[in-house]
């Protein structure tokens, strides 16, 4: 029993964090927003880091890593509000293909030549796919109408897990932006971040985020280990991450005052991604129902001795 994130995992996440912080800052989001949403150069950078091949087995030219590693990196993608479809293709699509024994496309995916649109019955759209375009509130999401009857439960779990992982990264980033703003904006002769009303709201966000993260990691490991209860843990992760991110989004805009209500301030990119992912791959109600069936329905053993049931 060891719930430790290894040095390797943490340093990989840090490398990706630093890379995205250096190459995918708010000015890039603005440029993409103004001009086409996707940029082959950004995609190539991700490919060069090996991220498209993260979950592709080594035999197919990838790094052969696991879902916990992918979840940690999906969190970094959320933090950077990454627009390219890396999470969908590489962290959701690849394990789904692998589960079906489909390996033909893996080498191309790892090499960045192919992206995978992932239509699913749970979503009324498909992201980065084809068809009649739909407009998302998130200017950097490319959505298309999709009536799809693929209801594959594993694909849904992967999609929900990686959405949850991105949501905690988005939440982290919004908290950071609000904290930084709280340090520089002065009113009544002091930085607003010195007011307890501001501090305490931000501290509550920190609590929610702190206790959502291990739920996401645990769910990733449960799915990786193919635990029978994995779906419940994924749903738990989606609810916890959504709640933490929505709380942080609403708090962050409040802390920014009217500035937060502008297009000018960066916050809205993160907030909109948060709104989008909150409902993607299963609504809060959908996931709460799965927890309900397990916990109140009695299919999952509960109590202190069943922490990792």
């Amino acid at each position: 029993m060891d719930m430790l994130l290894t040095e390797d995992q943490l340093s990989l996440a840090e490398t990706v964090r630093d890379y995205l912080a250096g190459t995918h800052g708010p000015e890039i989001l603005r440029r993409l927003d103004a001009d086409g949403n996707r940029d082959p150069a950004i995609w190539q950078g991700l490919v060069d880091m090996g991220l498209t091949g993260l979950l592709v087995p080594e035999a197919h030219g990838g790094l052969g890593m696991g879902l916990v590693d992918a979840a940690l990196l999906a969190t970094e993608c959320g933090r950077a509000c990454l627009a390219e479809p890396l999470v969908d293709t590489a962290f959701v699509g690849v394990p789904w293909l692998l589960a079906q024994g489909k390996t033909e496309q893996l080498a191309d995916i790892a090499a960045g030549r192919v992206t995978l649109p992932l239509p699913h019955a749970i979503n009324p759209w498909v992201a980065d796919g084809e068809g009649a375009p739909l407009q998302s509130v998130d200017p950097l999401r490319n959505l298309f109408a999709s009536a799809n009857d693929n209801a594959d439960p594993y694909l849904l779990d992967l999609g929900a897990l990686m959405s949850a992982a991105q949501l905690v990264g988005l939440a982290d980033a919004m908290l950071h932006q609000a904290v930084e703003y709280g340090k520089i904006r002065t009113q009544f002769g002091q930085p607003i971040g010195a007011f307890q009303a501001i501090k305490h709201q931000l501290a509550s966000c920190a609590v929610a985020i702190e206790f959502a993260k291990p739920v996401v990691w645990q769910a990733a490991q449960a799915l990786q280990d193919e635990r029978a209860s994995a779906a419940v843990h994924v749903s738990h992760a989606k609810v916890a991450a959504t709640d933490a991110a929505m709380l942080t989004a609403e708090t962050a805009i409040q802390v920014h005052g009217a500035m937060g209500y502008t297009y000018e301030v960066d916050l809205h990119f993160w907030m909109k991604r948060c709104w989008a992912l909150a409902g993607a791959w299963g609504t809060r109600a959908f996931h709460l129902k799965r927890v309900d069936e397990a916990v109140l329905g009695g299919t999952l053993p509960i109590g202190p001795e069943h922490t990792f049931a």
Partner: peptide, 14 residues
């Protein structure tokens, strides 16, 4: 919450 805000988040002291 004060400690969290000041020591973990780095907000200015009261």
């Amino acid at each position: 919450r004060n400690i969290t805000a000041e020591r973990l988040l780095g907000l200015p002291r009261v």
